[in-house]
Design a protein around this nucleic acid. Structure first.
Lengths: 108, 108
DNA sequence: TCGTAATATCGCAATATTACGATATGGGAA
DNA sequence: TTCCCATATCGTAATATTGCGATATTACGA
């Protein structure tokens, strides 16, 4: 064990879990926030923004990229990152649908 | 190591990471989805809904409760769970603000 | 070509998560 | 009280995550 069981859950549930997991670390939240704030692609300087070593940040960027939350474009010897809005939208839509349904709940 | 660094990140970033992490597992996504779909408090039968052992589900419910995503009320010897809409709203608002800012990005 | 800057990857140690059987706990019913 | 039912907690094995130093890699400029 130690492995997450994915069988038995819907594709959507697994997808949302993966996306949420990718945002489940303050460094990755900070990266996404920084990219959103900037409004443009950010080449480099993410390392200067966070209190983590370069190797660690590279790892976090990789995870965000794999989850589809950010995109990376090679620009010379630097790499430019930016948010993939569509993915963010996907999570937002999902949460909105959850919130909408629990709105009219006669709860304890 | 193995521990997440929280110092150096804002309170909000840490909070969002905690909430996202709580949703970062298909079982917990399924639980939240089920509670939202039901619209009312659910007493019991969550265990029958998921392909996991009772002990495991109890653990997941605990994590969701700790994160503030769900509330639990004791009803006799059963426990009724329901979504805490305010917390879901908090994540949604955050993501919307992220999406809004990255909307007008001239991206690569 | 050589050096340097930017990023990725490797390897490892520390710690966290996941899953579950076994066992507790606490309430209601017989 | 005694027996169930629902839920929580404990203990543990398997695996995942985190963080970082060291080391690649790759592209550019001198």
């Amino acid at each position: 064990m130690g492995t997450t069981k994915t069988e038995g859950f819907s594709k959507r549930q697994n997808e949302m879990a993966t996306l949420a997991k990718a945002l489940g670390h303050p460094a990755r939240v900070a990266i996404v926030e920084y990219l959103a704030k900037a409004g443009t692609c950010i080449c480099g300087d993410i390392v200067d923004e966070l209190p983590l070593a370069q190797a660690t940040i590279s790892q976090h960027l990789k995870e965000l990229k794999q989850a589809g939350l950010i995109k990376g474009n090679i620009d010379g010897n630097a790499i430019c990152y930016c948010i993939d809005e569509r993915t963010v939208q996907r999570i937002t839509d999902y949460l909105v649908s959850i919130a909408a349904r629990s709105k009219n709940s006669k709860c304890c």
